[in-house]
Design a protein around this nucleic acid. Structure first.
Lengths: 130, 130
DNA sequence: GCTTTTGTTCTATTAGTTATAGAACAAAAG
DNA sequence: CTTTTGTTCTATAACTAATAGAACAAAAGC
């Protein structure tokens, strides 16, 4: 699990941590039962305050992606199978896809870019650790 | 052009305005040369401050989607053909798609949702105003 | 010419967010 | 009993979002 934070980016640090954990779960780099580092450890590694890491973990807990407890720390939960796509996700996707189309990028290119990204998530799972 | 703002939403008002204009351009409801309402008019319609609308329009101008001038107001610019997908767009798409996959939604369902959204952008253009 | 309309720019204030800091608590492992 | 861990509290500084008011400048319309 390699995380990076960019203190100068316009994305908040706690959001960057949250996003990278989400991507690691999608890639299969983090699976059910995987442990995340203790908040104080991760904060020390990044040279940031532990409250910032705590905020990122708390957000992931609210989203149901990890569970938190004393001593066992932060553990990735099982993804419930056959989930429905939440309407707020669709709304955010609509805005993001519209942005590309409004800029003049052909719809089929946008869809291909999505396909490529989704394909990249399937390539780092247990069976084919490359 | 019908715009709506939700004062209680966690998305900033100026961002909501910007997003809806982007989606209107993607749908073809706004095309090259279309005029947006004057900032004071739009602000009065929503019951918000004109500086907030000004911020949204300024953002759209920075993105190259509209051009602003006194008296002609805000006008939608032509989308440059054959644009490349910007890397920051890909990064945001990666995070959004990863979020769906991490929640247990199958990749093919996510891709189908993207396809459906992209298809919906093509249905309101000049040739087939339904 | 004068008024109106329009975007633009300036200062200012209030409320909320982000990140930091320090202290303390509580549960559980060793 | 100590250490490790998440959790909770107060506090502060810097930044963002939204509002408010004033004023400016260019161009249209009369």
């Amino acid at each position: 699990m390699i995380l990076n934070v960019d203190l100068a980016a316009d994305v908040p640090i706690y959001q960057q941590i949250r996003d990278q954990v989400v991507e690691a779960i999608a890639h299969g780099a983090l699976t059910e039962g995987s442990s995340l580092p203790p908040i104080r450890t991760l904060a020390a590694d990044f040279g940031i305050n532990f409250h910032t890491v705590n905020k990122a973990y708390d957000l992931l807990r609210q989203e149901g992606l990890i569970r938190l407890s004393r001593k066992t720390g932060a553990v990735v939960t099982a993804a419930a199978a056959d989930q429905l796509i939440p309407s707020d996700w669709t709304a955010r996707a609509r805005t993001l896809l519209a942005e590309a189309v409004a800029r003049g990028i052909p719809a089929d290119e946008v869809l291909q870019a999505c396909r490529t990204l989704l394909d990249s998530f399937g390539t780092t799972r247990q069976e084919d650790t490359q």
